[in-house]
Amino acid sequence: MARWGMVIDLDRCTGCQACVVACRQENNIPEVGPEQAAMGRGIYWMQLIEEKEAAHEDAHIAYLPRPCMHCDNPLCVKVCPVGATYKNSEGLVGQVYARCIGCRYCTTACPYTARYFNWYKPEWKPEEKKYLSPDVSLRPKGVVEKCSFCVHRIRKARRKAKDENRELVDGDVVPACGETCPSKAIFFGDLDDPNSEVSKLAKSRRAFRLEDHLGTGPKVIYLREGEWSE
């Protein structure tokens, strides 16, 4: 059993948003259109969030890619009344679209605001349906969704390893965001494997986690900008 985690090196990140676009394409995320997006209803499983400080000369616009943290102690799972979100044996926080009643308690409980809701029925024109991937189910209106750490890729990789009669090795599983990143800032792997890249990077002096003090145990580790370190 693995314990999946992600490391995002902020010193490498250029803020290009390739991860955002790749994630949307991979996971069949619908566009909501201009009016809805202006209301703040856009769905961005991976989103670049900003921290702005101070006034002009010192305006520091730092940004970081924020997927779901897949917390070890997920607050969303605690509050879901119907068990539509759950933590599986590999540490992934899953979402069962078929069970979700859309009460949005999980969205209000998440301290990272990493969850999104389908306010209307996601729609694609007939032509646009052609680029939908069969690997990821389409969500109906009225359910919550969020980053899944590309669980379909994890399962595919596992199946492939099984077919090839071997174990999963580090590098077998690459989420869509990590695959596309032009500056190779996103790493993914098994945090329980001491030899995996993410385990080693997680020990870096530059490593930090968001809202760590809340005890959520997020499994996305960021490496802050700064001098080169191992």
């Binding site: 009344p81 119907v82 068990g83 009460c103």
Partner: peptide, 24 residues
């Protein structure tokens, strides 16, 4: 609360799959 549900047709999930850890 029923009005507030995104999928009200599944409201009975509260009965069939209710989770005691949830304040709701």
């Amino acid at each position: 609360v029923f009005f507030d549900l995104g999928s009200p047709h599944r409201v009975l999930n509260i009965v069939f799959h209710g989770q005691l850890n949830s304040p709701l």
